[in-house]
């Protein structure tokens, strides 16, 4: 009963949030300067033709009308067509398109996303795996030996890692491991090994946050009264840590993971894909921004907020399952 009630409420809240995010991005795109029609049709086109195409596309209607129309379309499962990319893939430079602009020739946004998203999922999964492998041992040991040298060590390691800008780190790793070392491939995609280096960059960015949080929540959990009472009740410290401390420490960690880490991962995924020219959703998005390809930008913004909202719901559901107090 609780789970159903909770899920329903959170899903409704989530839909509202996704709607607000889409509205914000939708409005921003239309308010800030930069006319997509100019890029679509190229610089040689007469202003009258531009106005005609813009009107046909509905870009001259009031924003609420445009937004309403867009949301109706989305609810039917149609994310629209790209302004720039044609159905065969690749983008048509505006100059060739000329006056015969037909939206139906352009690629469907849903297909563009479907083609790129597997690469992004591979990269994200690998990044999470690396992050966990780096941060769990370091964070756990630091938390158990809070205030002692392992804690200090993990603190300095994470202070250094968090100070490495990902754009720079990416280039340096390409130089060291790919260009000079020849150990790992980089730039573009030609097999799963191309995901390793970008995933490593992402993991180095996410790990410090995780290391510190794991250390702090394990240390805080160890401070709880029931841990020391457990010893006098006759339960061994090792069992106390594996069965109780970790369980309790996981609740703040789940929250952190749901809100901060996934948010960071999504954002940085875009940047890292751009650095490595990795053909995922992020690269699609950044190119779309430069081409003012509104339907793609809107769809990806909506998608990423939907991912965040879903992860949040799952994480909260897991947390309430671990700690029943959260249900009350």
């Amino acid at each position: 009963m609780f789970a159903l009630n909770f899920l329903l409420r959170r899903i409704v809240q989530g839909i509202v949030i996704i709607g607000l995010v889409t509205l914000l991005i939708f409005t921003l795109l239309r308010v800030v300067p930069g006319d997509p029609v100019r890029i679509m049709l190229g610089p040689m086109v007469a202003p009258s033709v531009m106005e005609q195409v813009a009107t046909e596309l509905g870009l001259r209607d009031p924003i609420p009308v445009q937004f309403g129309r867009y949301m109706l379309q989305v609810m039917k499962g149609d994310l629209g067509h790209s302004f720039i990319r044609n159905a065969q893939g690749g983008s048509t430079g505006g100059s060739r398109g000329g006056e015969t602009f037909d939206l139906q020739n352009r690629a469907k946004v849903s297909e563009l996303i479907a083609n790129t998203i597997p690469y992004s999922i591979l990269l994200a999964a690998l990044a999470i795996l690396f992050t966990v492998l780096i941060s769990f041992p370091l964070g756990f040991v630091a938390g158990v030996y809070s205030g002692k040298w392992p804690d200090r060590l993990s603190l300095y390691v994470s202070s250094v890692l968090v100070s490495l800008p990902n754009v720079w780190l990416g280039i340096v790793l390409i130089l060291l491991l790919s260009a000079w070392g020849g150990i790992l491939p980089a730039i573009g995609y030609n097999g799963p090994s191309y995901a390793i280096l970008p995933a490593l960059v992402l993991a180095i960015e996410l790990a410090p946050v995780m290391i510190r949080s794991i250390a702090v929540s394990v240390a805080n959990s160890l401070q709880e009264n029931y841990v020391s009472v457990g010893e006098v009740r006759g339960i061994k410290r090792r069992r106390m840590i594996t069965h109780h401390v970790l369980r309790n420490a996981s609740i703040p960690l789940l929250n952190l993971f749901g809100i901060q880490v996934i948010g960071m991962l999504l954002g940085s995924l875009f940047v890292v894909e751009y650095i490595f020219n990795y053909p995922g959703v992020g690269l699609l998005m950044i190119n779309a921004v430069f081409q003012r390809d509104f339907p793609i930008i809107q769809a990806i913004a909506m998608l990423s907020s939907a991912v965040l909202v879903c992860v949040n719901i799952l994480v909260d559901l897991a947390a309430t399952n671990i700690d029943r107090r959260l249900q009350y």
Partner: peptide, 23 residues
């Protein structure tokens, strides 16, 4: 709720949208 919505957009996505489209 406004805060939640704002947090549901990764910084980079918001930034590249605004900065990429404007000057």
């Amino acid at each position: 709720r406004i805060t939640d919505a704002q947090m549901a957009i990764p910084v980079i996505i918001l930034a590249i949208t605004i900065l990429g489209v404007s000057r």
